[in-house]
Amino acid sequence: MIELAGIERTFRVGDEVVHALRAVDLSLADGEYAAVMGPSGSGKSTLLNILGLLDRPDAGSYRLDGIETTTLPEERRARLRRERIGFVFQAFHLIPRLSAFENVELPLVLAGVAPRVRRERVRQSLASVGLTPRAAHRPDQLSGGQRQRVAIARATVMAPGLILADEPTGNLDRASGEEVVEALEALNRQGMTLVVVTHDPALGDRARRRVQMDDGAVLAD
C-alpha cells in the first residue's frame, strides 16, 4: 500500500528553483499495475526516485505499507529498499565484472543471507525469467533483452512487494521489449505492485491505471 500526500520536491539549478513535484497526491493499492506517463522533465523520474526511497521529498508524507518513510533515518530507508522494493532501470545497471548469477545474488549478499539459501533463490529467480542456461554469462555476453531480464530477476530475488521500472524498454528493440514487459506483467499477476515510468504510449496503455504528469503535477489519473 502506497500513500503519497502533498509531496513537494524542488531542485536548485544555478539561481533557478525548479519544481520537480508540486503537491502530488497518489495512492496505490497492493497488486496494482500503474504507468506514470508524461513528457521528459514532467517529474515522473523524480516521483519514481521518491517512491523508491532514493530521494526524499521536501514536504509531504509518503507512507509505504503504513510506515511513514519521510522521517526515517537513512539506515532504515536502506533496509526498506532492500526488503520491499525492486528496481528495474533503463540502463540495466548490471555490474560488468559479475556473472548473471552473481548480479542477481547481489541483493541477497547485501542483506547478509547465507550462501546456501542464496543459491536456491537465485536459481528460482533466473528460472522465472527463463535465463537458467545463461547464469554463468557476464553482462557483455548477453543481449539487451537478456540483460534486462537479469535485472528483473535481481529486482525480484528478495520477493519485494513493489517493483519500480524506469523506462524498462527504453534501450531495447520491440521484440526484446515485449519479452521484458511480459516478464514484468507476470510479476504483477503474482501480486507485486508494478509502477512503470515511460513516455511510450504503447507501453503505458497496457497498464490498468495511467497517471499522467506534466510540470511536476498529476494531470489525470
Binding site: G52, E75, A78, R81, E83, H93, I95, L106, L110
Partner: peptide, 16 residues
C-alpha cells in the same frame, strides 16, 4: 559511481 548508486538502490547501507 554508478555501481555505488546501484548498491544503494539495492539496499546497501553507508557502512556496507
Amino acid at each position: 559511481t554508478a555501481e555505488v548508486g546501484l548498491l544503494k538502490a539495492l539496499g546497501a547501507r553507508q557502512r556496507d
